[in-house]
Simulated scan of single mutants.
Amino acid sequence: MHVRLGGRDVLTDITVDFAPGELVGLIGPNGAGKTTLLRCLSGAIAPRRGTVHCPRRAVGYVPQRAHVAWDFPISVFQAVLNGRAHLHKFRPAGRADYEHAHQALARTAMAELADRSIAELSGGQRQRVLIARALACNPRVLLLDEPLTGLDVPNQEMLGDLVKQLSHGGTTIIMATHDLGQAVDLCDKLLILKGTVHAYAPPQDLKDPELWQRVFGVSADAALLRTVGART
């Protein structure tokens, strides 16, 4: 797959297969193309060359929280229910839609806050609402763009447990993150991206310090290498 945006090549020669129920950490430096890759997988961006072999309705995309208008006057339940709107563009939500929305709220431990305004939520609660919104459509693949950024440690742990539960239930999860320690600890595989795929393997197989130095532009003594277990 090849993606060109704004007159420049953002992603080149991307070839990767994701297994059912796999939790993948998508990592790389700023500007590496992580969000672009997620948007391609979601169908929001069409690659210049190549294809994405996954039905669009089988994919749930969770954007960064900063890209959502949290001051919009809407309840938690309505926000999640609206995630199903594209499934029935020309009819009102029906009983099945309401049931799926309630189930998604239960899976993300947000059912008790269903009637609360989204403007009143904490950062961790907002992240769970976005995940519930995507889950309301029963996706086989869930794409998460920086879900842990800006959260305190308890909320990071809670969301880490949630994504592990979802992957154990058979949902394939691709999660872009800057938290390398969390990615190494949490994910089945790491996809190291910088314009192209530099590695795609389980964390324990990615101990070559030269790989991390090349992709992240750090020195041989960088703390990053110790974080990912490439240097003791």
Rank of each mutant, 00 (worst) to 15 (best):
residue 36 T to C: 08
residue 153 V to M: 00
residue 4 R to C: 07
residue 58 A to V: 09
residue 46 A to F: 07
residue 50 G to I: 04
residue 110 M to Y: 09
residue 159 L to H: 04
residue 158 M to V: 00
residue 192 I to T: 04
residue 154 P to F: 03
residue 189 K to Y: 08
residue 68 V to G: 02
residue 12 T to A: 14
residue 213 Q to N: 04
residue 184 V to P: 00
residue 16 V to L: 13
residue 166 L to H: 04
residue 145 D to W: 00
residue 79 A to H: 12
residue 208 D to E: 14
residue 210 E to C: 04
residue 35 T to H: 09
residue 212 W to K: 13
residue 97 D to R: 05
residue 91 R to I: 08
residue 173 I to L: 14
residue 8 R to I: 09
residue 51 T to P: 02
residue 167 S to A: 15
residue 166 L to D: 13
residue 206 L to Y: 06
residue 101 A to R: 08
residue 228 V to S: 04
residue 59 V to N: 07
residue 223 A to G: 09
residue 197 V to W: 15
residue 8 R to L: 05
residue 50 G to C: 05
residue 69 A to F: 11
residue 19 A to I: 05
residue 162 L to W: 14
residue 115 D to M: 08
residue 130 L to C: 11
residue 172 T to F: 06
residue 147 P to I: 01
residue 216 F to L: 05
residue 130 L to Y: 04
residue 121 L to C: 10
residue 181 G to S: 06
residue 146 E to T: 02
residue 49 R to N: 11
residue 141 V to R: 08
residue 18 F to I: 07
residue 37 L to T: 01
residue 32 A to V: 08
residue 223 A to Q: 15
residue 204 Q to M: 01
residue 173 I to W: 13
residue 147 P to T: 01
residue 7 G to I: 09
residue 73 P to A: 06
residue 33 G to H: 03
residue 182 Q to N: 04
residue 225 L to I: 07
residue 179 D to I: 03
residue 6 G to E: 06
residue 74 I to Y: 14
residue 1 M to H: 14
residue 184 V to G: 03
residue 146 E to S: 00
residue 191 L to N: 08
residue 132 A to L: 09
residue 30 N to K: 03
residue 132 A to H: 06
residue 100 H to Q: 14
residue 4 R to A: 13
residue 193 L to Q: 09
residue 205 D to N: 12
residue 15 T to P: 07
residue 40 C to A: 15
residue 143 L to C: 12
residue 81 L to N: 14
residue 81 L to E: 11
residue 201 A to S: 09
residue 69 A to S: 15
residue 180 L to I: 02
residue 30 N to Q: 05
residue 57 R to K: 11
residue 2 H to Q: 06
residue 11 L to A: 07
residue 69 A to C: 13
residue 188 D to S: 11
residue 232 T to S: 12
residue 149 T to D: 01
residue 10 V to L: 08
residue 19 A to C: 07
residue 13 D to M: 04
residue 1 M to F: 10
residue 159 L to Y: 03
residue 39 R to S: 02
residue 2 H to F: 07
residue 188 D to Q: 05
residue 136 A to F: 07
residue 40 C to I: 11
residue 16 V to Q: 14
residue 86 H to K: 09
residue 17 D to K: 07
residue 201 A to L: 02
residue 178 H to Y: 00
residue 62 V to D: 10
residue 122 S to K: 00
residue 95 R to C: 06
residue 127 Q to M: 02
residue 54 C to G: 11
residue 129 V to K: 14
residue 188 D to N: 13
residue 33 G to E: 03
residue 187 C to E: 07
residue 174 I to E: 10
residue 168 H to G: 10
residue 21 G to H: 13
residue 31 G to E: 07
residue 190 L to T: 00
residue 53 H to R: 14
residue 70 W to A: 09
residue 7 G to E: 06
